[in-house]
Each structure stands twice: as structure tokens, then as C-alpha cells.
Amino acid sequence: MGGESRFEIHQNAYMKLVLHALKHRTSAVNAVVIGRSAGGGAAVEIVESVPLFHSQIGLLPPLEIALIMIEEYYAEKGLSIVGYYHANERYDDFDLATVAKNIGDHITRYFPQAALLLLDNRKLDSLSKEKARSPVMQLYTKDASSSWKLAGSEGSNPLVLKEPTANILLLDYISSGKWKDIVDFDDHLNDVSKDWLNPELFK
């Protein structure tokens, strides 16, 4: 692959990922991020996210059903799955899980620039202590040998927030318990009346 892509994530897509993990603090959770290539492929814009599972996240049949439904819905809007998000079960676990790498591998077959986003609870904890303007996530991309590696170097972060105030708003939502309202694909499969698109979440 060529030079490292820059990923810009929109506020609502970003907050939905973090709130999903907070709703299921004792479980691993995952999601896909939706977007498009920009800037001649040198940048990827993440405009939306879809929380997937909080139980048995490695099971293939429900994952395949979810990915098909998500792809079909967003294709009509000119968008596609551009990456995968994972939050580990243990709060102090900062390693990229094998299941995350495997699902990421699957997504790169369709979108070679795909990113893996891993929630970093250390950064989440520091949100209230400082005016953090960077995402509370680690970004992994595939290197020339097709291995997942932590992206960016000292002083540079190829994952940026589109809106600089996203973390301030996120803190407000955390303190108000907004995470209780989030619906993931697991919830939808258990009760189809629950909308995995979360259309009312930030209204």
C-alpha cells in the first residue's frame, strides 16, 4: 500500500462508538464505520457508525447478516463500510484482539484502506482532566506486509475529529447517561422494533 491515509471522523459517528462501549462496560463490543474516500484516496471520511454486537461478537452468521444489511442501506447513499471498531472486554486491555484483526481483514477485501479503531480507556479517562482534541481511540492500518500496525508516529495522528468540540459534547452525553439509549445490531436481532440506525439518539 502507498502512503498512510488520513482518517477524519464526524462527531456523531465518533460519539456513538464510545457510548456503545460505555453501555456494555463488562463486554467486548464492536461496530463498523461508514464513509468514503476523499482527496484522491489519501484521506477517508468517516461520516457514520453502526454499533454491532455486545455478546459473542466473533460469531460469523449474525455478523454476515449485519454487514449485508448495512452495505445495502448505505450503498444507496453513496457510502460504504470503511473500517471496524472494537472495544476490549477488560478495561486495562489495550491490545488488538484476534477477532478484531480477522474482521478487519474481511473488510479490507472490499476497502483496502480500511482502518481498525480500538477504544483506549486511558484516553477516555483523561477526557475530563484536559481539553483533549484527539479521539479516544488507537488507529490501526495495514502495512506493506498486510499486518495490522498502530498508525501515526510521534507527534502525528492520522485519525482526527472533524469537529474540534466533539470530546466536550461527548463528556456531556456521558454525564447525562446518553449511552443508555444506544441500540446495536444485537438489540435489533432480539427485538426488530429497535432501530440499529439510532435515528433519535442525538435529537
Rank of each mutant, 00 (worst) to 15 (best):
K142N: 05
R25D: 14
D120A: 05
V18K: 04
N102Q: 13
M137V: 06
M15K: 14
A38P: 10
L197T: 09
V44F: 04
R122M: 06
L189F: 13
P62C: 05
R133Q: 13
G177H: 05
T98W: 01
S153A: 12
E48C: 00
A43M: 03
D95L: 06
K178T: 11
A66D: 09
A31I: 01
L52D: 00
K149N: 12
D143L: 13
K23Y: 07
G78I: 03
A75S: 14
A42K: 15
E76R: 12
R25W: 11
P61N: 02
A115T: 11
M137Y: 04
S176M: 13
Q138R: 14
K194F: 04
K203V: 14
A151F: 00
D195C: 02
S153W: 11
Y140Q: 08
N157C: 11
I174L: 01
D93I: 10
A132T: 08
S145Y: 14
P61M: 03
G177N: 07
K180S: 11
I103C: 04
Y85M: 02
K101V: 01
K129N: 14
W148C: 10
Y14K: 07
F7D: 09
A151Q: 15
V160Y: 09
A13T: 01
K77T: 09
K178C: 08
Y91A: 09
H10D: 14
V29G: 06
P51N: 01
K180I: 12
D125N: 13
T141N: 00
D187C: 01
N12A: 09
L79C: 07
P112F: 08
A114L: 03
K77W: 05
E130G: 09
L161G: 12
D143N: 15
A75V: 04
L59C: 10
I107F: 05
I65E: 15
L117D: 05
S128M: 07
L17K: 00
G78M: 05
I81G: 04
V29R: 02
